[in-house]
């Protein structure tokens, strides 16, 4: 057992898989010699050499296409798109190419690849370098979408993503890179499509993702200590496949549902979960499900503005407390 940062967990996860399988290769902008702009790939070039860890030009379409062509023909590429906002310049591959090739070819073409990307706000970078775009990807049939919140999950879910035969979008949260967590020694392999109950509770279910997970946990402590409300916190972790059973089971116990989402409100991932719970567990609910999200705005750059628009522990506490009428 060792304490590791989320950033170092990315390095360890990639290294674990590259050590295991010589067909795992890695490409992206500034990822090799420079070790990545977030320093989340430091040492991989030195460890695995220039044939397996490759710097690319600033050509997101070439990165995505190259990963796809390599995956179709037998490699297991990991590609980095530096900021998830840049998905917009290579969205053809995310929306049209690698998720649809298996279906359109009637199963002939396989696309086992992982796209890692720096996602989310908190760095005061403004509207084009701060977005949470997991919901852009969630709506596309054929993709899998993962967003870990802790170092141990980074390693385990990255390993699962690399070993998965489908294309996986792996959202790393930029504001979590410096956070730390306990990580066991040895190989770590997790399972896609599994949510985790991080804190059991009986009064309300709060589902959260990535940076919103520690905020929900902090809110839960306050709600318990100051208001006597006992919240169950679920880290959704994997949007596709989605572990609805864990969520429905929790709602059956607590009878209330809250989502905490960093993505802007419209068509955020929480809307799908609320819809599923409304369809399938309506009579378990003692009150309306409530979504706590970033408003439907581009993100402002200024620190005091950005801090106000993202869901905070304070906003979560207030929303849950008001909804439960205490």
């Amino acid at each position: 057992m060792a304490e590791l940062t989320y950033r170092d967990a990315v390095i360890r996860g990639i290294a674990q898989e590259m050590t295991r399988d010589p067909d795992v290769v890695f490409l992206g902008e500034d990822v090799a010699k420079a070790g990545g702009v977030f320093k989340a790939t430091v040492g991989l070039y030195e460890q695995f050499g220039p044939l397996r860890v490759r710097d690319t030009p600033i050509s997101e379409q070439a990165i995505m296409g190259a990963a796809m062509g390599a995956a179709m023909t037998g490699l297991k590429p990991i590609a980095e798109i530096m900021f998830s906002d840049f998905f917009a310049v290579c969205f053809d591959y995310i929306a049209n190419e690698f998720p649809k090739s298996r279906y359109m070819s009637n199963g002939q073409v396989k696309c086992p690849l992982v796209i890692r990307t720096g996602n989310g706000a908190g760095s005061r970078f403004g509207a084009q370098h701060s977005q949470s775009v997991e919901n852009w990807c969630m709506m596309i049939p054929g993709l899998k979408v993962v967003a870990p919140s802790s170092p141990v999950d980074v390693i385990g879910l990255l390993a699962a993503a690399v070993r998965d035969p489908d294309p996986v979008i792996f959202c790393e949260h930029k504001s979590l890179y410096a956070t730390k967590g306990e990580v066991p020694d040895g190989e770590i392999v997790d399972q896609l499509g599994t949510a985790k109950i991080l804190r059991p509770g009986k009064d309300a279910t709060i589902v959260a993702l990535a940076l919103m997970v520690p905020r929900a946990l902090e809110a839960a402590e306050k709600l318990k200590a100051e208001h006597g409300i006992d919240c169950e916190i679920i880290d959704v972790r994997s949007l596709v496949p989605l572990d609805t059973q864990t969520i429905l089971g929790s709602v059956a116990k607590t009878h209330r549902l809250f989502s905490v989402e960093e993505n802007p409100r419209l068509c955020g991932w929480g809307a799908e979960i609320v819809s599923i719970v409304a369809d399938e567990a309506f009579y378990d609910l003692d009150g309306p499900p409530v979504r706590i999200t970033t408003p439907h705005i581009p993100l402002p750059a200024a620190d005091i503005l950005e801090d106000v628009v993202l869901p905070t522990p304070g906003r979560i506490v207030d929303t849950v407390r008001r909804s439960l009428g205490s």
């Binding site: 062509g69 995956a71 190419e97």
Partner: peptide, 24 residues
């Protein structure tokens, strides 16, 4: 290895297949 209906998409994809040949 496929016929691609989005103009230009398959040029990078062909690069990826060629990269695999080079690597292997």
């Amino acid at each position: 290895m496929g016929s691609y209906a989005i103009i230009g998409a398959h040029l990078p994809i062909a690069c990826g297949a060629a990269w695999r040949a080079q690597y292997k």
